[in-house]
Design a protein around this nucleic acid. Structure first.
Length: 563
RNA sequence: GCGCCUGUAGCUCAGUGGAUAGAGCGUUCGGCUCCGGACCGAAAGGCCACAAGUUCGAUCCUUGUCAGGCGCGCCA
């Protein structure tokens, strides 16, 4: 039984109320000095016809304290319960010591699959800061869901379909050559595309040629396909560099083009179910009063992004039999996903409830909208490179003798970018500024990593974590207790992060834990004469090390043992 | 025009139907003969956008107003 339930039962007996009702009333006080659980007595005032402070006083006298509770106080209408510290600390640390890397994991998802659609890059476009949120969020969610026991299918839903690819091939045939693309990569492809747009303004017949090339892709014409596939490979190779740096892999790269032969089924099914309606020559599905109709087929019979997303959803359900299907996509597309899920519901599939749009805020650069064409953009490899460079410079200054300096610089620099991206709730817009992005002070990855490295250092000096049982009653000071409480809250935080689709909860916890440990470190000398005290403090240090490491792992951030 | 989202310290953001609304950055002051100073302590800084309502109690819930962002058929 949990502490909460024990206390609720004791109070319920004294106040003659249902235990469940009391349990729901119990809350956590705002600060540690006010105890571990509090019962606000205001609600009871009406039924008991007494002032809240009096009720609290009475309950204080009449309640039989459960063994875990050391004492109870009546303060301004609150009944505050204080747990025995040694027991709290033991309850916090013992599971970490026992479970190690598995601390924070759960069995919730046992036997269930979750599809996570994230990153989903466009062909022939360079990876930039606009792709950071989906990539980093999706990766963190993949790790969090895995920790929760789910089987995760990571899907990079490539943007590899559309008339722009016809234009690009047309431009390539006219002005490009193999060598120029091999050497220039995506940048060269982008330049070709820009040139096409410019020339097409002067000569409209180019647009027809572009359309013709796209038709050839649709018809699987060998020459068109060869070039198209090659462009795709170059784009993916470039993206793979970034994914490697971030430690990200995907289970599937089935993008839009993968679904071109799977849309007929969708159209047939929508027609058979009477959902498709003609509207100005196009085909739409009505999705209710509160949303505009969902456009499925263009006037000319061509499919749309929506059609492909619908086909993809059905395919994923068939192929993976997912318990959940997540789409990590910016909030711009809120309406689109609401419509998509509604159509699936109208098709009669109960699993529409398992679809979730993990939406996040927009990215701008120094107050302005990102604009690739104007060069008003920051590319991800540049950002990561500069972060690593800065980390390397700091190492050179502070710790020049550190072995594997390059590796640590990568862990810190890249970790810093990832951590910052996962620091706030998803919905917040992000305005990118270089000085902010490269800030290593305060609530950042290096702060948490430093604390972790310091724990490792202490453990090295102290001969490692104590093997056997330690005397937890030696950890009865305020700062030890604060650390223990945060450690104890980690599994619940992971669960919350999963259910809310909000990795930042874990990011924040890692900072709070590092802060609490720094306080503990200031208050207590860890390696002391008394072996029992040293063992107890090292046990706490090792638990902090483990939880920080586990937390950072879930975020996709590495934890170097020295830095 | 309609819909969704956001509004909390100078800046970036947490937060909760309940006790004194928190953190980082920035600013000011202070701390290594001592286990890692990429650290720590302290101070200053708030009409929780505004107004009504519900409630014993609202920054939180409801409604309205204002400001900003996004979206609203043949792009993705």
């Amino acid at each position: 039984m949990s502490y909460r339930d024990e206390i609720a039962q004791a109070v319920a007996a004294a106040a003659q109320l249902p235990a469940a009702e009391v349990a729901a009333m119990l809350e956590t006080p705002p600060s540690q000095e006010m105890g571990d659980f509090a019962l606000p007595c205001f609600k009871l005032a009406k039924t008991l016809r007494k002032a809240p402070p009096m009720i609290a006083d009475m309950l204080k006298e009449s309640v039989t304290l459960p063994p875990a509770v050391e004492r109870v106080e009546s303060v301004k209408g609150y009944l505050n319960f204080y747990l025995h510290r040694a027991q709290q600390v033991r309850d916090a640390l013992a599971p970490v010591r026992a479970l190690g890397e598995a601390y924070g994991h759960s069995q919730e998802g046992q036997g269930r699959t979750v599809c996570i659609d994230y990153s989903s890059i466009n062909i022939a476009k360079r990876f930039h800061i606009g792709h950071l949120s989906t990539t980093v969020l999706g990766h963190a969610l993949a790790r969090i869901y895995t920790a929760m026991g789910y089987k995760v299918v990571s899907i990079n839903h490539l943007g590899d379909w559309g008339t722009q690819f016809g234009k690009m091939i047309c431009a390539y045939k006219k002005w490009g050559n193999r060598q120029m693309i091999e050497e220039g990569g995506i940048q060269a492809m982008t330049e070709l595309y820009v040139r096409f747009d410019q020339e097409a303004q002067k000569d409209e017949t180019l647009l027809d040629e572009g359309r013709a090339w796209f038709k050839r892709i649709e018809d699987q014409d060998p020459e068109a396909m060869e070039i198209f596939t090659w462009f795709k490979e170059i784009t993916l190779k470039d993206a793979m560099r970034v994914y490697d740096m971030l430690g990200i892999t995907f289970d599937s790269y089935a993008g839009e083009s993968f679904y071109i032969d799977k849309m007929g089924r969708v159209i047939d099914e929508l027609t058979a179910k009477g959902l498709l309606r003609d509207s100005d020559g196009a085909k739409v599905v009505d999705v209710g009063e509160d949303m505009p109709p969902y456009l499925i087929l263009k006037k000319d019979g061509a499919t749309l992004y929506a059609t492909r997303d619908l086909a993809a959803a059905l395919y994923r359900k068939d192929t993976y039999d997912f318990a959940k299907c997540l789409y990590v996509v910016a909030y711009q597309q809120n309406l689109h996903f609401r419509q998509l899920f509604k159509v699936i519901e109208l098709m009669g599939y109960p699993w529409y409830k398992d679809m979730e749009h993990i939406s996040y805020g927009m990215v701008s650069y120094e107050g302005q909208t990102l604009a690739t064409r104007k060069g008003h953009v920051v590319y991800l490899d540049d950002l990561l490179a500069r972060a690593v460079e800065k980390a390397a410079a700091i190492i050179q200054e502070k710790n020049p003798d550190l072995p594997n300096k390059e590796q640590v610089a990568r862990q810190v620099g890249i970790g810093s970018v990832v951590f910052t991206t996962l620091f706030n709730s998803r919905i917040k817009d992000i305005d990118f500024w270089w000085d902010r992005a490269l800030n290593f002070d305060g609530e950042t990855a290096p702060y948490v990593q430093y604390c972790h490295a310091r724990c490792c250092s202490l453990l090295r000096k102290g001969g490692g974590a104590p093997a056997g049982e330690v005397d937890y009653s030696l950890l009865d000071d305020e700062s030890s207790l604060a650390v223990a409480k945060l450690i104890a809250s980690f599994p619940e935080t992971v669960t919350d992060a999963c259910h809310r689709g909000e990795p930042f909860l874990i990011t924040r916890l890692s900072v709070a834990l590092a802060q609490a440990f720094n306080r503990f470190y200031l208050d207590n000398r860890i390696l002391v004469e008394d072996p029992a005290v040293t063992a107890a403090r090292l046990a706490l240090t090792d638990a902090v090390r483990q939880v920080l490491r586990n937390a950072l792992y879930l975020l996709g951030v590495e934890a170097p043992e020295a830095m």
